[in-house]
Simulated assay, not measured.
Amino acid sequence: MSVRLPAPARMEGRTVVITGASSGIGRAAARELALLGAEVAVVGRNPERTAAVAEETGGRAFLVDYDRLDSVRDLGAALLHAYPAIHVLANNAGGMAERASTGDGHDLTFQRNHLAGFLLTSLLLDRLKATAAVAPEGSVRIVQTASGAAGFGRPRLDDLENRRGPWVGGWRAYANGKLENILFTRELAQRLAGTGVSAYAFHPGFVATSFGGGGPLISLAKRTALSPEEGAQPLVRLAAAAVPAPSGNYFDRLTAPGRTSRLAADADLARGLWEASAALVA
C-alpha cells in the first residue's frame, strides 16, 4: 500500500542542515523551512550564493568542497561547534560530473554523490542520536536527495569508483550514485533502529535547475520540468511533516514506496556499500 507525505508542520526550535543549499531545490527548501520556523544551516560551495541564501533565510552559511574529504571533515567540525542539537540532516548535494579523480583518489561522481555525504553523516551521527534522545519522537531525520535515475543504477562493490565499463556521458556513474543514496538510507535505517533517528530518500522529479547542463535534449525537457520550489517539496515534507512510512523508505516525489531498481532491496549490497565506504573515509 502506498502512502503520501502530508503538508509540513511548524519547525520552531529545530535545526536543519542542508547541503547543496546555495541553488536549486536546496535553496528552495532552505527558504521554506526557514519560513516554517527552522534554524537552517546553509551549506554550499559557492561563497557568494551560499552567503546570499543564509542572509535571506536568517541562517548561517557553511562552505564545503565535496571534492576534498578534508573539507567535509572541516564542515562536520564547524557544524558540531555551531549547533548543540541537529534535528535534520539533508544530504542534498550531488550531481553529474566529468570522468576524473578527486585529490583523495576517488571517482569524482562517486565522491560527490555518495562518499562525501556518507562521511558527513558519520561525523554528525552521534549529535543526531543525542538530539533524538531529548527531542519529540520521530522529529530527528536524515534525508537523502536521490533520483529516479537510481532505477538504472548497477553499482558493484568491486568497482565503486566506476573505473570499468562505458562512461556514457557520466549517466551510468550518476545512476550508480543515486542508487547508492537509497542503499545508504536503507542501511542507515537498520543501523539506527531504536535510536530515534529515522532515514529517508526521495526522488524530487525532473526539476528546472542547472543540473545536466544546457544540451538540446536537456533544454527541451526543462520546458516541462518542475520548478525548484515544487521539486523541493519532498525534502521540505520529509524534514517537517509527520512521515507516514517506516524509516528506510524511498519516496517518488510525495509517495512511498517509490519504484526503483530491485538492487535497492539488496541487504548484502547495502551492508557492503556501508563497510566499503567506512574503510574509504577512515
Rank of each mutant, 00 (worst) to 15 (best):
G24M: 09
G37W: 14
V42S: 04
R31G: 03
R27E: 13
D107Y: 03
V53C: 08
R27W: 01
A85I: 02
R31Y: 01
D67L: 02
Y66R: 03
R49N: 05
N91E: 09
E48H: 14
L80N: 10
S22R: 12
L75E: 12
A41P: 09
N91M: 08
S71L: 07
A77L: 05
A82R: 07
D74M: 10
R73W: 02
V16F: 04
A34N: 13
H87P: 11
V43N: 02
T57A: 13
H106P: 05
N91W: 08
H87G: 14
A30D: 00
S22Q: 15
D70H: 06
E55L: 13
S23F: 04
A54R: 15
A52H: 08
M96F: 12
E98P: 01
L69S: 13
M96E: 02
G103R: 09
R49V: 01
L33W: 06
D74R: 15
G26A: 00
H106R: 09
G20E: 11
G105A: 09
V88L: 07
R27P: 05
R27T: 06
S101C: 05
G94N: 01
N92L: 03
N91G: 07
D67V: 02
M96S: 11
A29D: 03
A21W: 00
L69M: 14
G26R: 03
Y66C: 01
G20T: 05
P47I: 10
R45W: 07
A30S: 03
A100T: 00
N91T: 14
D74C: 05
I86Q: 00
V72A: 06
S101F: 08
I86V: 07
A97F: 06
R60K: 15
E55V: 09
G37N: 04
D104I: 02
L69D: 09
S101G: 15
I25Q: 09
S23R: 10
V42K: 06
A51G: 10
E56R: 15
T102L: 00
G44E: 04
D70E: 15
A29Y: 01
G76V: 11
V64D: 07
R68G: 00
R99D: 09
R99Q: 11
H106T: 12
G95H: 01
T50L: 07
I25P: 04
R27Y: 01
F62I: 12
Y83L: 10
P47S: 08
F62N: 08
S101N: 10
V64C: 06
G103E: 11
T50N: 10
G58L: 04
A54W: 11
G76Q: 15
G58V: 09
A93T: 03
V43H: 04
G44C: 07
A100N: 00
G103A: 08
S23C: 10
G20V: 04
A85R: 14
Y83E: 15
L89M: 13
V64Y: 04
E39K: 13
S101K: 14
D65Y: 06
H81V: 09
R99K: 12
Y66G: 01
G59C: 09
R99W: 03
D107G: 13
S23Y: 03
G76I: 15
H87V: 10
R60T: 13
T102F: 01
N92A: 02
A54F: 15
A51I: 11
P84A: 10
D107I: 03
R45H: 15
V17G: 08
